[in-house]
Amino acid sequence: MKKIYFVLVFTFFNLLTSNAQVVGTEVGDIAPEIDLPDTKGNNVLLSSLRGELVLVDFWASWCGPSIKEQPELIKLYNTYPDKFSIYSVSMDTKKPLWLAAIAKQKLPWTQVSDLKYWKSPVVGDYMLQSVPLNFLIDKNGIIMAKNIHGNALNEMVKSLLTPQ
């Protein structure tokens, strides 16, 4: 009986002190994989961008705040062309509107969508409730920040990419 009690207590404390990373959407978690088609229909894995800092940006052509944010993202993207990528996930359901928004804003980075809107599996994986929403992911796929915009995003990217 004592042996069983000891094993249970040991297991309990081991679970409490375990710091193993998990796939999830909180800072410190491993970002869930995304595998969606780009504008040409070719699937692009989020993990294919490992090795650099990546902003996973959920947006839509009909979302005013998403569109308003694009010029700042373009500046940030152009500031760190070899160290920083953006992986945009559109929540659009109409491909012509999605493609028109990309062309109008001249968005140069990876654009993906399955055009299923809220029925996409990515919505559940990232617990998406509204757009814009983003996740800043380090070179190892670890979430560094969540829903970070404007100057806070610029400063964090700068701090992560500027040698100390």
Rank of each mutant, 00 (worst) to 15 (best):
I30W: 03
W118P: 00
K83P: 03
I148V: 13
L153V: 07
C63H: 09
P96A: 12
A20S: 10
N78T: 00
S61I: 04
P71Q: 13
V23G: 00
K106Y: 10
Y87E: 02
S159R: 14
P71W: 15
N154G: 07
I34C: 04
V157W: 06
S48F: 06
L55K: 05
P32Y: 15
V9C: 09
L107D: 09
F84G: 05
S113N: 10
I74M: 07
V122A: 11
L16N: 12
M91D: 02
W98G: 05
K104L: 09
G124W: 03
Q70H: 15
V112W: 06
F84R: 08
M144L: 14
D114S: 05
F135G: 08
T110S: 03
L161Y: 09
N147S: 15
L16C: 11
N154Q: 13
P81V: 07
G141C: 08
I143H: 10
V7E: 05
Q111G: 01
P96W: 13
T11L: 15
L8M: 13
L161Q: 06
T39N: 05
F6T: 02
S120D: 00
T110Q: 12
V112N: 03
P32I: 11
K139C: 10
K104E: 13
L16T: 00
K75L: 10
D125T: 06
D138V: 09
G41R: 07
P37Y: 07
K146R: 15
K2R: 09
K106Q: 15
P163R: 14
Y80A: 06
G124Q: 08
F84V: 06
V27N: 06
S130M: 03
L133H: 07
Y77N: 01
P163N: 07
K158T: 14
L53M: 13
K146M: 04
S88D: 01
A20C: 01
A60I: 01
D57P: 01
S120Q: 02
P81L: 13
A101C: 08
P96G: 14
V27P: 02
V27F: 12
S90Q: 02
L115T: 04
Q129G: 07
T162A: 13
V123Q: 05
A145L: 04
E26N: 12
L136Y: 02
D38F: 02
K40D: 10
L128S: 03
I102T: 05
G51E: 06
Y80C: 08
F6D: 01
A20K: 09
K119P: 00
L107W: 03
F6Q: 08
S88N: 03
E72H: 15
S113D: 02
V56Q: 02
V122E: 04
N43T: 05
